[in-house]
Amino acid sequence: MTLLAFLFCMGGFAALSLAMPRHHAALVGGPLASRRRLGLKLAGWSGLALGLAASLAAWGLAWGVIGWLGLLTTAAAPVLLAHTWWPRAKP
């Protein structure tokens, strides 16, 4: 359940980051249509919300919120690193 929460958070952050024109251009290329942007944002926030739900399910109310915040930190880090090195790895 913890792993699931982590994956939800990471997926959420990945979608949110791709909803940002700069990162979208670097990783996907091409212009970011406003409908796609909205979709990505929606998906991103839902991912984070699902992460919270899974954290609550894993740890209960008091520790779930704390755990979720911790997962947000650790889940955002790989997304950040991906944005740093992924575009460079592409030819």
Binding site: F13, S17, M20, R22, H23, A76, V79, L80, L81, H83, T84
Partner: peptide, 9 residues
Amino acid sequence: FADFFTFRP
């Protein structure tokens, strides 16, 4: 927020 995912080594 704009630099949330930014790291330029």
